[in-house]
Design a protein around this nucleic acid. Structure first.
Length: 624
RNA sequence: GCGCGCGUAGCUCAAUUGGAUAGAGCACCUGACUACGGAUCAGGAGGUUGGGGGUUCGACUCCCUCCGCGCGUACCA
């Protein structure tokens, strides 16, 4: 497999594979992996191969001997310095230092419109489950993660040239939704609310009221009777229980009417859906998360498929009865807990819907890969649903293989007290309030640090910085871990934060504003003339090495479904740029050639940084 | 009970998936042509990677065991 890549890792990989084949002959594995990566420590070189040690183990020979053999057959012409005494080190590391004149060529090759990211040979269709709002409920921090992480993953796939289909699996069906529908209908009938001016706040309140009204306090009633707390308390609770049972019954009737497409009931439900979804889409737009209306694929859209799914599973003997319910046994997949697909009362469960969801994604949407950005607490559920879907053949692709089904699980957002992020009274924090506060705080800092910014730009910048800060805080640590939500930390303008990354880009923009003023040179001039890279200073070479890693980082981020890798990379890139910027004068460079070379380096850094930030879903600005 | 996840510097987090002397940021200390945006940079200090055992050339990473925290464990989604 030859590569036309300009990514040094790929180039070195090809050279190493040839060398390994030549050096080891029949001992060489059929698909040798040279294990090339950026050098762990710059003092050893720029890149390293770790292939000799595992080979030594496999062949039962000293790894250094194997390393020597590989090096003897290694042709590094045009890429790296020829091997010397320090090439093989330690137990058998092979260290590579790029040839000084290779840097410029590699960077020049990277400086294409797609920044070295090659179109995939076979683009995949990847369905990303994200956002997952519920009808009649405010979005909160949980939705923040599902939206921000899901959108970032989707953007990364898109950036790599895959076909991405976003699915907002809206919780818009079932008894809880029927409860709130019935409740809102009641309120409307009594004239307590105005349907024309219905807000999500109204619905959120109604949702909780409906939940309460439909939960009979039987334990309370028992307790009152057991401890004989008096006829008054007993009567109150009896009334509560009776009322709740009645409300629950009405909700069930409402659900039946919904299922049978009763006009007035459906209209009420639709009104609730419209209000919820327009609020959801407004928040997503504000978050710069691409969750368009057409990505909505609520549970309701599966309602007519569920009976078919269950019949199918029963007919094929995959689902069996157990205690009156229907289950799929998954012991052969190593899962003790069976997957419930129908309740003993005949109702379907969310697993049923998710099976139908997988079937639709793979069979109808053509998914090669289904990614679910969903809370880690759903781990067992997805393990079961995936195993069940595979067992049922719902994940089978036309070529006979199974689509990849992956749960991009994320941890809980915690408050400063290390407990799940809630208000003091134990309520979920509204996502919109959270965004507001981040923006206000960002605005205060911007006003202080850059008072000359016109007021309207200040507002725009504060919005971008505040939102980016929240998103970066959510994306920058390992997905599955819980993290503590702290405005103070995420909005620091230094350190590992969104604002710091935005700032690095702002400095580059500023250089070009000055370059235009002082020398009449613009970014598009640099793009057109493409002045040669110089890369004499160590800071320039370090920055160049960082830039060259970009395509590889995007790949590994997509493979692992871990946006924090891209975050870490961008922060390192920003740091390398700051070092370069500190050490190497650009506009005050000693001569015109150096100035041009450094402007070109700034330009390319700006492109990669800007591209990376956008790919994560952050919002770059010109000034801040 | 069983299962899953987590435990790394005072704090918040990384570690190319088994590689070299475990790295960053905050906070702390010392410096930087009086600043191409200092919202920066250079340096210092800070560690028995929860404990113990094992696997091997090599372990934060894999296996066993114990401790602590969180979550999940069939008719809610």
């Amino acid at each position: 497999m030859t590569s036309t890549s300009h990514d040094p890792v790929q180039l070195l990989r090809d050279r190493f594979i040839s060398a390994m084949r030549a050096a080891l002959g029949p001992d060489c594995p059929p698909d040798p992996d040279p294990l090339i990566g950026p050098a762990r420590n710059p003092k050893f070189g720029d890149y390293q191969s770790n292939a000799a040690m595992p080979l030594g183990k496999a062949l039962g020979r000293p790894p250094r001997e194997i390393a020597q053999q590989i090096v003897d057959h290694l042709d590094l012409a045009g890429i790296a310095l020829p091997p010397d005494d320090s090439t093989i080190a330690g137990p058998g590391f092979i260290n590579i230092r790029l040839a000084p004149d290779a840097y410029a060529g590699l960077l020049d090759a990277l400086d294409t419109p797609d920044l070295g990211v090659e179109k995939p040979a076979a683009p995949e269709t990847i369905v990303v489950d994200l956002c997952g709002v519920n009808l009649a409920k405010q979005m909160h921090v949980g939705h923040l993660r599902a939206t921000v992480i899901g959108d970032a993953l989707a953007r990364i796939f898109e950036r790599l040239g895959h076909r991405v289909i976003r699915q907002n699996h809206v919780g818009d069906w079932g008894l809880p939704i029927a409860m709130v529908t019935a409740h809102v209908a009641d309120l409307a009938r009594r004239g307590t609310i105005d349907l024309d001016k219905l807000t999500l706040d109204d619905l959120d309140t109604a949702y909780r009221a409906a939940q309460r009204d439909c939960s009979p306090d039987r334990r309370g009633l028992e307790a009152v009777r057991r401890y004989d707390l008096g006829p008054k308390a007993e009567a109150e609770l009896e009334e509560q229980v009776a009322g709740a049972e009645e409300a629950l019954e009405r909700a069930k009737q409402t659900l039946i009417r919904l299922q049978s497409h009763d006009g007035a009931t459906v209209a009420m439900w639709q009104r609730i859906a419209d209000v919820t979804m327009s609020a959801c889409h407004a928040i997503c737009r504000r978050l710069h998360a691409n969750v368009p209306p057409e990505s909505a694929a609520g549970e309701s859209t599966y309602r007519d498929e569920l009976a078919g799914v269950v019949d199918d599973l029963v007919n094929r003997g995959l689902a069996v009865e157990s205690d009156g319910a229907l289950v799929i046994d998954l012991k052969d997949a190593g899962i003790a807990e069976p997957l419930l697909i129908r309740k003993s009362d005949g109702g379907f469960l969310y697993a049923t819907t998710d099976l139908a969801g997988i079937r639709r994604r793979v069979q109808k949407l053509g998914a090669d890969r289904c990614v679910y950005a969903v809370d880690a607490r759903q781990g067992l559920h997805f393990k079961q649903a995936f195993a069940g879907a595979i067992k049922a053949g719902y994940a089978r692709k036309p070529d006979g293989s199974d689509a990849r089904l992956e749960h991009a699980a994320f941890g809980t957002v915690l408050g400063e007290d290390n407990k799940p992020f809630k208000t003091r009274s134990g309520e979920n924090v509204k996502l919109s309030d959270l965004l507001d506060e981040a923006v206000v705080r960002a605005g205060e800092q911007i006003k202080e640090k850059n008072p000359d910014l016109p007021a309207d730009e200040q507002r725009k910048v504060a919005e971008a910085v505040g939102i980016s800060a929240i998103k970066y805080a959510d994306l920058s640590s390992d997905r599955v871990r819980d993290y503590v939500f702290s405005f103070d930390r995420m909005l620091m303008f230094e350190g590992d934060t969104g604002p710091y990354l935005l700032y690095a880009l702002v400095r580059i923009r500023s250089i070009f504003r000055n370059a235009a003023e002082q020398f009449g040179v613009t970014e598009s001039d640099i793009d057109a003339r493409r002045p040669g890279f110089a890369l004499d200073a160590p800071e320039e070479r370090a920055l160049a090495l960082a830039l060259l890693q970009y395509p590889g980082v995007l790949e590994s981020t997509a493979e692992a479904l871990e946006p924090h890798r891209l975050c870490t990379y961008l922060r390192t890139l920003a740091e390398e740029f700051s070092r370069f910027f500190q050490q190497c004068p650009v506009l005050k460079a000693p001569d015109e050639a150096t100035r041009g070379a450094r402007l070109r380096l700034c330009r390319l850094t700006g492109k990669v940084l800007g591209d990376g930030l956008t790919t994560l879903g952050l919002i770059p600005v010109e000034r801040m």
